[in-house]
C-alpha cells in the first residue's frame, strides 16, 4: 500500500487538508487510525464534520500523533488504496516540550517510510509577511530531504484568504524546479490537480 505523508510547519492546515481531501475523494465517514508513541494503533470512526471540529484547532501542535485514513482511488483495473498520513508540525529549532520533540522525530521517521510526500505551506501567512522570510529554514530542508527518492508535492494552502496570491508568487519564486499546487483545504480549490498527481505517483 502506498503511504502518503502530509508534512509542514505547525498550523499550515495539514489536518484540515487531510480531512477535506478525504471528503473530496468521496469519503463521508472516516476511520481515523492514530498511532500512539508506544506503537499501538487506536481506531476511531467520525463523520468528516465531527472530525474537523475535533481535530482542527487554531493552536499550534494540535496533532501530536501520526493519524491516518485510507483512501480508495480508482487505478487501472481495480483500486489503489492510499494511506494518507497526517503528521505533527515541524519547527526550525529545538522545541521545549519533550512530547512535541518526540512527535517531530516520528514525523521524520514517517518521511523515510512514505512513498509520497505532501508538503504544505501557508500561502496566506507568507503573503502577509511579504518576503521570503515567511518560508522557514525547516521548509527548505524538508523540501530538499523529501524530494529524494520519492514523489514530492508542494501545496500552497489557504488560497481562500487574502494575500495568499502574493504568497503563492513568493513560493513559486523560492522553490524553483518544484511544481507548486495552490489549494484551499477550506474550499477544496486545486484538489483535482493534487489528486491527479497523487494517483499518478501511486
Amino acid at each position: 500500500m502506498n503511504k502518503c505523508l502530509i508534512v509542514g510547519r505547525p498550523n499550515v492546515g495539514k489536518t484540515a487538508f487531510l480531512l477535506s481531501f478525504a471528503k473530496y475523494c468521496g469519503l463521508k465517514e472516516l476511520e481515523i487510525r492514530v498511532k500512539t508513541s508506544d506503537g499501538t494503533t487506536i481506531s476511531k470512526r467520525r463523520s468528516i464534520d465531527a472530525a474537523y471540529s475535533e481535530l482542527v484547532q487554531p493552536t499550534s501542535h494540535t496533532t501530536q500523533e501520526l493519524q491516518s485514513v485510507l483512501l480508495d482511488l480508482p487505478f487501472g483495473k481495480g483500486q489503489k488504496t492510499l494511506e494518507l498520513v497526517d503528521s505533527s508540525g515541524l519547527i526550525d529549532g529545538i522545541h521545549p516540550s519533550p512530547a512535541i520533540r518526540r512527535a517531530m522525530a516520528r514525523t521524520l521517521e514517517a518521511i523515510a517510510l512514505a512513498q509520497i510526500i505532501i508538503h504544505i505551506l501557508d500561502a496566506a501567512l507568507i503573503g502577509l509577511k511579504g518576503t521570503g522570510e515567511g518560508i522557514g529554514a525547516i521548509d527548505w530542508d524538508l523540501a530538499e530531504y523529501a524530494k529524494q527518492n520519492r514523489e514530492y508535492l508542494l501545496l500552497a494552502n489557504k488560497m481562500d484568504l487574502s494575500g495568499a496570491n502574493q504568497g503563492l508568487a513568493l513560493i513559486r519564486k523560492s522553490f524553483t524546479g518544484v511544481r507548486v499546487y495552490p489549494v484551499s483545504a477550506k474550499t477544496m480549490q486545486g484538489f483535482k490537480e493534487v489528486r491527479r498527481h497523487v494517483l499518478r505517483a501511486c
Binding site: 515541524l90 519547527i91 526550525d92 529549532g93 529545538i94 522545541h95 519533550p98 520533540r101 518526540r102 517531530m104 522525530a105 521524520l108 529554514a137 525547516i138 530542508d141 524538508l142 530538499e144 530531504y145
Partner: peptide, 14 residues
C-alpha cells in the same frame, strides 16, 4: 533519537 532528546534541532536532523 537525538531529535527527540532535544540534542539537535529539526533542521539539523533533516
Amino acid at each position: 533519537q537525538e531529535l527527540a532528546k532535544g540534542n539537535i534541532s529539526t533542521v539539523e536532523a533533516l
